[in-house]
Design a protein around this nucleic acid. Structure first.
Lengths: 229, 229
DNA sequence: AATAAATGTTGATATTTATCAATTTTACTT
DNA sequence: AAGTAAAATTGATAAATATCAACATTTATT
């Protein structure tokens, strides 16, 4: 008698995801052969280090960020399964231009860059799907840049909350795995200001706060604040 | 007797560029069939409008930017021939997520999105080259985000000058087609601050200013300021 | 369960940058 | 070449945000 563990279930979903991207069974076998576990807070990749791998997030949550000299990070993406991380390093100067850290215990498949590249070159459907991911990544970065570069704190925080709710958690509730500091680094602000803006939004009944969990009560209001600048 | 105009010369270079990307003669014919001229200051594409075309810059210079409600733009890229613009719109929600304007009289080849997509799907070498461009675009956006989100004005301006000198003009001299306002929008600062920081850099003998033309005298110093944060 | 460590919160203050206003210089148009 | 428009510059001021310090709360560890 065969028993199904949560892991089997997850494996099946991963294979489905990869099939939809156009990979055949041998290719799927190749890209899922190396699996690594990361604890909460562990570095999945370090900015500046040699970019040997493209990573496929199989389980857990990650944050990708750019770090500057004074250890002040800018998070530009939160990722959930199943996502591919490191596409920007597929070509270029061979180094990761960003850091990536696990927000909770996570499992990641590592695929050597050259292997990944060869699959792309031999599989048009897959190449096309990868290009779609690049398009999305660029659009996401444009959105971040727009928010961070020419808006004020209230709008920035609203943008971050909208991003987390709509794009990441697909829920009114933002998981407590996201800290105030994460929101700060996502918004390009200091943590203390996040706390203050969140308090404002709570007073305006736009959000509810239960310890670290934030629930969006009035998305329209957040969007108005976001547009207002 | 055949006479060569500057335009013929330019056509030849464009064809060479496209050949290197892996396009064959019929494909080159297709992507260069529609050519449009833009005057200085004209919109090449407008943020929010329907994204029908991928654009190939054949002659001139363009700036790509994100505009917010209060008409405060953030330039994220300056482009010179030969560059492909609009790759982020190849898939997705069918709208340009950025605006693009001619910095001087420019010529652009328009390629319908679907046509471009079909070529990618049938030409592995070209797909691979396009993916390289996506990688570069992402890396450039990471750099911009890093500069704009967690540095101070001096460092931001240095980043912009380094970008313009090394990546764009490939010269110590930054062309006067770049205005103070352009540098401001590239750095995420107000124009008045750009003037002040440039004056500072001039005093420090890091740059020389002749009207609108800026010459970098001490790149090392700029890089130190850039890193300092 | 107790303790330590990390995260969150609040108020006061300093710093940075934007804005505004006035003027000069440069570029464009006829 | 004159006149107009656009861009650059300067100083003064206002606004926004970061920083610092002190403390509270939550989470992790033994």
């Amino acid at each position: 008698m065969k028993t199904f563990s949560p892991d089997d279930e997850n494996n099946k979903k991963l294979v489905d995801f990869l099939k939809k991207l156009g990979l055949n069974s041998p290719e799927i076998k190749i890209v899922t052969s190396t699996e690594i576990e990361f604890k909460k807070g562990e570095n999945v990749c370090k900015q500046g280090s040699f970019a040997s791998y493209i990573m496929i997030l199989k389980e857990g949550w990650l944050k990708s960020y750019i770090e500057n000299i004074h250890f002040k990070n800018t998070i530009f993406k939160i990722t959930k399964p199943f996502s591919i991380i490191g596409l920007s390093c597929l070509y270029g100067d061979n180094h990761y231009h960003f850091g990536c850290q696990a927000l909770m215990p996570s499992k990641v498949c590592l695929v050597e860059r050259t292997v990944f590249d060869n699959i792309i070159k031999g599989n048009n459907k897959f190449a096309s799907e990868i290009i779609k991911m690049y398009s999305n990544s660029l659009q996401n970065l444009y959105d971040r840049l727009n928010s961070i570069s020419n808006k004020q704190s209230l709008s920035k925080v609203c943008d971050s909350l909208i991003y987390l709710s709509e794009k990441i958690f697909e829920s009114d509730t933002i998981s407590p795995i996201i800290t105030r500091r994460d929101i700060a680094e996502l918004s390009g602000l200091a943590t203390e200001n996040i706390v203050r803006v969140l308090a404002e939004l709570k007073t305006a009944n736009a959000i509810a706060i239960d310890k670290k969990e934030i629930t969006i009560l009035d998305m329209d209001m957040l969007k108005r604040f976001s547009c207002f600048g």
